[in-house]
Write a protein that binds this DNA or RNA. Structure first.
Lengths: 198, 198
DNA sequence: GGGCTAAACGGACCGTGGTCCGCTTTCATT
DNA sequence: AATGAAAGCGGACCACGGTCCGTTTAGCCC
């Protein structure tokens, strides 16, 4: 039997008890979330439910926001995988504009689904460069394929911005729009930006 | 001498000690902010500095975020006044497109100036309908004057979204853009949206 | 297996945001 | 000026996020 090679993994691998506790904590957090919502979730409760001390929770996740961000991470990874190698039109194989519109619809749903969690994760998630960077790069590439010229990095972030939770909340809760209207508005926005190429 | 009529004011007027304490608290908060930044400001410190009890702070402002939002309110009101009746191109008198571009530049600066405070105020400020609603209505009207057709309410919020602090932080801190590049990108975005009218 | 080291653990402890309730002040009315 | 009621006040109190450090445990080398 060959020993596993360490490959190029620089992370020195987690100790087994640490890994077990991390999973126990994520499971406990998910269960408590399902029962009471993100707002009411306390770190003491998570620790107790997982059968570990509170210090362990903070050692693993750094902060309450970090724990929330870890919960979000699962869904985000699935979503990124769907973009990279899932079925069209979100994944490869469809026309760029169809992929772009599918991106918006999918991202919109994801954000609305996870809204409470995203808000609870605050800046730890919101400033997660890996997440923002991936979406931004994807949109930027699609815009390039569509023949859009100009400041693509900026346009990409500007196209993604109205899909953020605070904007969606304003439009839906205060502006009286439905989810469908928001998506239709976003699609129109994208068409205009693509069309407006001088 | 005629007694002041109550007019149509529904607010039953603040008692004099309450008004005095409110100003003292806002002044104290502003001073402490200047000294240590928004992050380090504690409610106990504000109360002590203003010479009142902590309960009074929460009675006036509801929460820490509420206090931050009240501090922001001054600047916001000045800004709204400048839009409504200040000198062009931000105020009335300039061409719609010039006003729109001036709006973006002015809003961008305002947000960057008050970034720390805005983040400290969190949702209490971010979901302030009066603020979002004013900006959104203003942009919507300008778009109308520019002959843009379509879902103006949506387009207005989408144009404002990339001027939000989280997006600006991403672009400037992680994306390597300068303030000038962001403003140039936003101007380009607006031109495209206006031009893209079918 | 024995022993060594670094990592992980846990829960007592602390600071801060937020609440509560008995006491004080304002002010309208007479 | 006296008075009554409502608004305001203050600081003891609580809950929760986050830290710290003495103790335990996993994993490795002999």
């Amino acid at each position: 039997m060959s020993k596993d090679l360490p490959l190029l993994v620089s992370a020195p691998a987690e100790r087994r008890d640490a890994a077990r506790n991390r999973r126990a904590l994520l499971d406990a957090a998910a269960e408590l979330m399902g029962g009471c919502g993100a707002e009411a979730l306390t770190m003491d409760a998570v620790a107790a439910r997982a059968g570990v001390g509170k210090g362990t929770v903070f050692r693993r996740f750094g902060s309450r926001e970090g724990l929330m961000a870890s919960l979000l991470n699962h869904r985000e990874e699935e979503w990124q995988a769907a973009v990279i190698s899932g079925p069209p039109p979100l994944g490869p194989g469809a026309e760029p504009m169809d992929r772009l519109l599918a991106f918006g619809a999918s991202r919109l749903r994801l954000h609305l689904d996870q809204g409470a969690l995203i808000e609870a994760a605050g800046r730890t998630w919101g400033e997660n460069y890996a997440v923002l960077g991936f979406a931004s790069m994807h949109v930027r590439i699609l815009l390039g394929l569509l023949g859009v010229e100009g400041n693509l990095p900026y346009l990409a972030t500007a196209i993604i911005a109205p899909l953020g939770i605070p904007v969606l909340r304003q439009q839906i809760d205060h502006g009286g729009m439905t989810e469908e209207q928001v998506l239709a508005g976003w699609s129109e926005l994208v068409q205009r930006i693509v069309k407006g190429t001088p």
